[in-house]
Write a protein that binds this DNA or RNA. Structure first.
Lengths: 143, 143
DNA sequence: CTCCCAGATCGTAATTATTCCGATGTAATT
DNA sequence: AATTACATCGGAATAATTACGATCTGGGAG
């Protein structure tokens, strides 16, 4: 998904493209990782110093509602956002010590199928599957 | 896991049993569900009015470190705690509208096995698998 | 049983993350 | 150019969590 494709999709949905929204999108698309709201604020401030937290949060939640952005809630209460690349749905290996993460290609589709069958009354919209532990570096450090 | 079993396990690990810790344990063991820190504070205050937030959080994190308690981080940044019944590991179906949940018996073990094989350098300690969507009641209510 | 002290708790302040809100700005439409 | 509907700003309000000095106490040593 490129920036232009995303922009025309937004326009098609009747969403105004403001400079702030554009900058936030660029940050999200630029690097393949996920961000805290604060990181996004800092990055956007580089090219748009006047942006406020309010705008960042509102924009992220707007994008989330539109399905452009995913919200991740990790152990410890860390909330992160990432661009939703539908073509490459994935989960994470999260280190509890340093907070680093790796993407995983594996997805528990069998389980999901079973759950859908067993709970037809529940309208599933998404799922999370995160693996916690200690990364190669942190597992060697005691405490 | 009964209260007495848990207490002797704690003693065995050299952990002091204070009245506050005892009350928190009772709350966690009493009903089969999960709690916010605030709910635990409120419940413990009924029998121990002087307890502070600090104590609740420190105790929960202590129990978590000892493996007695699990911390769950749901969409929206809600943090919840529940007693870790190792014999009955489970995941959740979480409604994004009303916040209600159901326990699931299904667990993506195949996926976990594959991930362990593919990432032998990562020391896995736990995982989360939550399904989000709308429950029977909320899916019928528009907005 | 009593004493003692490392560890636990209290009370409250500090910190952090998130949301709210009134005033102002901006883009599209008539 | 005026109107209208959103967006944004700036900062205050709220909520959740953590920190910290003063005080207290569970449970082992004697």
């Amino acid at each position: 998904m490129t920036l232009n494709e995303t922009l025309s999709r937004l326009k098609g949905q009747g969403v105004k493209i403001t400079p702030q929204r554009l900058e936030i999108l660029k940050v999200l698309l630029d690097e393949e990782r996920y961000y805290s709201a604060e990181e996004i604020l800092k990055k956007v401030q580089e090219s748009y110093p006047a942006i406020s937290y309010d705008t960042v949060y509102r924009t992220l939640y707007l994008f989330k509602k539109l399905g452009l952005v995913l919200e991740l809630n990790f152990q410890g209460g860390y909330r992160r956002f990432e661009f939703n690349r539908q073509d490459r749905h994935h989960h994470h290996l999260v280190c509890l010590k340093c907070g680093c993460s790796q993407k995983l290609s594996c997805c528990p589709t069998d389980c999901l199928t079973r759950i859908k069958e067993e709970h037809p009354e529940f309208a599933i919209t998404s799922h999370s599957f995160e693996i916690y532990g200690y990364c190669e570096v942190c597992r060697k450090v005691k405490s």
